[in-house]
Nucleic acid binder design. Structure first.
Lengths: 343, 343
DNA sequence: CTGAAAGCGCTTACAG
DNA sequence: CTGAAAGCGCTTACAG
């Protein structure tokens, strides 16, 4: 037996004085192997804890059974649920998952892509960073013939499928909810404008106002590029200080909504009575702040599952299919921060 | 040029009518290659976006440059910071990271180990699941000669290094803080007892009481196996209903502490005046609940970084070194939930 | 029922 | 300065 390192087919063949081919076949329960050899091989493999070398298999089969994932940051609850969805779907089909974090950084996103392509993953699932607008690094993936599926943040014009939520509708519903709470002057703390996701939410916000015969005023739309609590809090501080009337806030993520909550608290503005607030991308802690935060919830786990399944489908098809966009529904979760009926 | 799939050395060699060896050497800037060939090769490689096949390299070098990680659940803030630490340290040295979630499940932990060992990762970083007490699956890793380092949850008697925090001291400090706040009857919502981490915290709790001449009463130590908010809330409901005096709670994680907070709120018990509460494993949202939660903070990012660096060191050493335990410090963060001075 | 050979992509000791 | 050969671990078409 070998002193160190994992056992190979060769080790087993040598010890049994047979060929590698025979060991390989015995292990895979091939027809036409004598019961005696089969038994001997399997026993020895068990004894030595033989595990097929996935690297060798990948090289031979030209297939790694690994799905690559490029994701902004795994620390966010939403993204970690997406990952769980991806992992479960992948594992069910015998695939492993290799995750790379771009940290919302364009250059690092390129490094991630390179690392995954070097690793010869069978396909890559990507959620582009906030900074990404040039798509050359992604186009290369497609050119090399590697399946690619986008999730959460839509990317257009690339002949690759996407799994997203209906951001327009989610924003529309959120704003309409505020209008039903009798809000007249609604601020939108928007996401970065180079993401389609951000523009869709602005459109949803605008349409909801329009459909309710309310004016769309550019000074009520404030971009929060990073989506942090601090950034949103500072933005709201300024708006409040300017004296413009505000009785509703739709923030494009929950951290920003909490920033608005903090700004209101500091300014002595009552939530929801004087200012109703709703966020986006609900998570476990939205309900634990005071007052509990209303939000538009997104089905993270399903997004991951759907994206992985779409990917698996593409991997298993010889012919490249036409790309498709799968849109999942959002849901407005009303809690204390925007509920004036029970307030 | 090939129609699909990534370009190989062979493709370049064929197009240039030279041998693979020469292409390989030109690409690696080997001495003794004519400038002309070198230039031609590099230009073509660029043009076709050549990337070395990591799979082939791994097989040849008997080294994947991948570090495997087995972690309970990435959705927790603490674990996701650990992962960031691991990734940054690994990436700096040219390693990729492959993450497997055990979901706190013993069987799935075994599957993770098998997947990573099949993938021939160069080493595995593991935080054992709450259910794990039999270590056979981990012993196999060591037997195969693959470096292994434990993080966060100490594992003893396995000749493998660990990177942990000083759980005894963290618990001791937390309880002493409660005593300084004049708490006389302190409940400990403990973690699962099969984890050393859980036992250490019980010891820290007990020592702090002892050193302050306070009685250690078994009925004041309640095990919360899963560490969920619901479980802790239910446990506290029962304790409060029993009528036993309670004026302090040390919970072995922050979700459990929030459960205690909720139970107190329901029962009309004022926090911190009537009951001071402190959790463990601080994270971004501990300060956002009402009242803001005191907690023992653990340096997640550093744990990950240290564990990865220890691993890289072991990988690069021919001889197996004696295993070591690296202990990082915790810090008591006092917020409103246990601060009676400013209350 | 079993084995020898070729090949996946790459590197490198050995020749020339 | 360049090439042919062997080998990492595995599978499988081809012989026998």
């Amino acid at each position: 037996m070998k002193k160190s390192g994992q056992v190979t087919i060769k080790d087993i063949a040598k010890e049994l004085n047979i060929s590698c081919s025979t060991v390989s076949r015995a292990l895979k329960d091939f027809p036409g192997i004598s019961p005696a050899t089969k038994k001997a091989v399997i026993e020895l493999a068990d004894k030595y804890n033989y595990r097929p070398n996935a690297i060798a298999l990948s090289l031979r089969n030209q297939k790694t059974n690994i799905i690559g994932v490029v994701i902004p940051e795994t620390v966010h609850f939403f993204f970690s649920t997406v990952i769980s969805g991806i992992e479960d779907a992948a594992m069910k089909e015998g695939y492993n998952v290799m995750i790379c974090q771009s940290n919302e950084n364009y250059d690092r996103e390129g490094d991630c892509i390179d690392a995954l392509m070097s690793a010869r993953v069978d396909g890559v699932l990507v959620c582009i960073s906030r900074e990404t607008s040039d798509l050359a690094h992604l186009q290369k993936v497609v050119n090399d013939g590697t399946p690619m599926v986008f999730f959460d943040r839509l990317v257009e014009g690339m002949n690759a499928s996407s799994v997203i939520v209906d951001d327009y509708q989610g924003a529309y519903d959120a704003v309409e909810h505020l209008i039903h709470q009798n809000c007249k002057n609604i601020v939108h703390l928007s996401g970065p404008e180079n993401l389609i996701i951000g523009r869709k939410r602005i459109e949803g916000y605008s349409s909801a106002l329009e459909d309710n015969n309310m004016p769309i005023r550019p000074e009520y739309i404030v971009e929060c590029r990073n989506g942090t609590q601090e950034e949103a809090e500072a933005a709201m501080d300024k708006l409040i200080a300017s004296g413009m009337p505000i009785d509703g806030v739709f923030a494009s993520n929950d951290m920003a909504a909490i920033g608005a909550l903090m700004a209101a608290r500091k300014a002595g503005i009552k939530v929801p009575e004087d200012m109703a607030i709703i966020g986006y991308s609900d998570w476990q802690f939205s309900r634990m702040v005071e007052p509990a935060l209303s939000s538009v919830s997104q089905p993270g786990y399903e997004i991951g599952k759907e994206a992985a399944n779409l990917m698996l489908q593409e991997i298993n098809q010889k012919e490249k299919q036409k790309s498709q966009i799968k849109i999942l529904d959002t849901e407005v979760i009303v809690r204390a921060s925007s509920n004036r009926n029970s307030a």
